[in-house]
Design a protein around this nucleic acid. Sequence first.
DNA 1: TATAAACCTTACAGTAATGGGAAGGTCAAC
DNA 2: GTTGACCTTCCCATTACTGTAAGGTTTATA
Lengths: 134, 134
Amino acid sequence: MNIGQAAERSGLPAKTIRYYEEIDLIHPSRAANGYRDYGDQDLHRLCFLQRSRSLGFTIEECRTLLSLYDDEQRASADVKQIAKMKIDLIEKKIKELNSLKSTLSVLVKNCHGDDRPDCPILDDLAGKRSVETI
Amino acid sequence: MNIGQAAERSGLPAKTIRYYEEIDLIHPSRAANGYRDYGDQDLHRLCFLQRSRSLGFTIEECRTLLSLYDDEQRASADVKQIAKMKIDLIEKKIKELNSLKSTLSVLVKNCHGDDRPDCPILDDLAGKRSVETI
DNA sequence: TATAAACCTTACAGTAATGGGAAGGTCAAC
DNA sequence: GTTGACCTTCCCATTACTGTAAGGTTTATA
């Protein structure tokens, strides 16, 4: 199938699919007219990539996961470890965002938010700690 | 003061400070030898940038916040709105990450994680929905 | 048959917000 | 006087794409 159909079926933009080829994640064959030609195996790989990217794995992690997927001798522990590491990173990011949110929420709560010019948010950003922001 | 000291006092790398100048967020004067020379006002702006960046505002948001900060006639509501929008974005991101985490956790839980090759994580990525992943 | 639209191709540039490193000028200390 | 710690500009790399230009191919329609 052409790239357009591969895009539609995998849920990835054609542009992204070409990019994945450029960085050696996929190697479709070419039709006589020079068009890329995707087989079922290729489509499968694209779907794998779409799913793993959407789960937050980086391109390089996807590359590793794909190679593990290709390797019939892999140990499931290897895959599990990558996924666990990812969970840890996600947890860390969530904590960071929660902390940011708390700080911003305190600032917003303390800002009267009308047309007067005095603003605790700007005061805080400027280093005037008028409010306890956790 | 030189860029090194401005960096130390603001908590921003010198490289970043030069970048902020390049994109017109700050305009330090120059000493006779060509070195950048930061005054108290400049340092203040750098600290403002450091704080607002660390709170998750993008550079362009920082630019807006700085211009509001400079504007004696601003309405605090304008600032509040930007901060609120940021909170919404942060909340959305947190939800996304929680969802990712749940999915990955289910996959990890279902993977025996030993040296056998069968792996529910890879199966899921490959589109074989063997597990309910929310 | 002509032509227009809908595909496809490559190649180059841009994004956000820095980080790294080269090549070279300046300054303070010993 | 020379070493080492600064500073300068300039260009390239990062992540994972996205946009655009210039052009070739295929398909549908007038």
